[in-house]
Measured scan of single mutants.
Amino acid sequence: EVPFKVVAQFPYKSDYEDDLNFEKDQEIIVTSVEDAEWYFGEYQDSNGDVIEGIFPKSFVAVQG
């Protein structure tokens, strides 16, 4: 069931425009499960802007 919160276990950096880049310990709200390997989610950056994109499930852990 979406949405749910995950926390980055590792930093994720990608050159693909659709990917969500983040640092370790970033909290991310997952709004869609793309497939067995990928989530789609969002978070607010330090400027208060909402950043969204896809990212690999293996880089995050589900909270709770």
Rank of each mutant, 00 (worst) to 15 (best):
F10W: 12
E34Q: 14
V6L: 02
V30H: 03
P56Y: 06
V30L: 03
G48L: 05
Q63I: 15
Y16H: 15
Q9H: 08
W38S: 07
A61N: 10
I54V: 11
S46C: 12
E37H: 12
Y12S: 00
F10I: 09
N47I: 06
F55N: 02
F59M: 12
A8Y: 03
D25Y: 11
D19V: 12
V62A: 10
I28P: 01
Y39G: 01
V62R: 12
S58R: 13
G48R: 03
Y39D: 02
G41W: 04
Q63S: 12
V30G: 02
K57Q: 10
A61D: 10
Q26H: 03
Q9E: 05
D35N: 14
D35V: 06
I28D: 00
L20P: 01
D19I: 08
S46G: 10
Y43E: 00
K57C: 09
F59N: 05
V60K: 00
E27A: 07
T31Y: 07
Q9C: 15
F59K: 09
F4V: 00
Y16D: 12
Q44G: 04
N47E: 07
D45S: 09
N21H: 11
E42L: 10
I28N: 00
D15H: 11
E42V: 10
D15M: 12
S58Y: 09
V50D: 03
P56E: 03
S58C: 15
A8H: 02
P56A: 03
V7H: 05
I54P: 05
G64S: 11
V2N: 04
F55D: 02
A36C: 13
V7A: 03
E27Y: 06
V60R: 00
V30S: 00
G48A: 03
P11L: 06
D45N: 12
Q9N: 07
I51C: 13
N21C: 12
Y39F: 09
Y12M: 03
Q63R: 10
P3Q: 04
E27W: 08
I54F: 15
S46Q: 12
F10H: 13
G48P: 01
G41M: 03
L20Y: 02
S32L: 08
D45H: 07
P3Y: 07
D18K: 15
S32M: 09
F22D: 01
E1M: 13
K5E: 04
F55E: 00
V6A: 05
V7M: 07
N21P: 07
I54Q: 12
V2A: 07
G64F: 10
S32D: 06
Q9M: 15
E42H: 15
F4M: 03
Y12T: 00
Q44W: 07
K13M: 10
V7Y: 09
Y16W: 10
D15A: 12
E27I: 15
P56I: 04
E52V: 13
E42S: 13
S58T: 08
N21R: 07
Q63D: 09
I51T: 06
L20Q: 02
G48E: 03
Q44M: 14
D35Q: 07
F10M: 12
G48W: 03
V30Y: 03
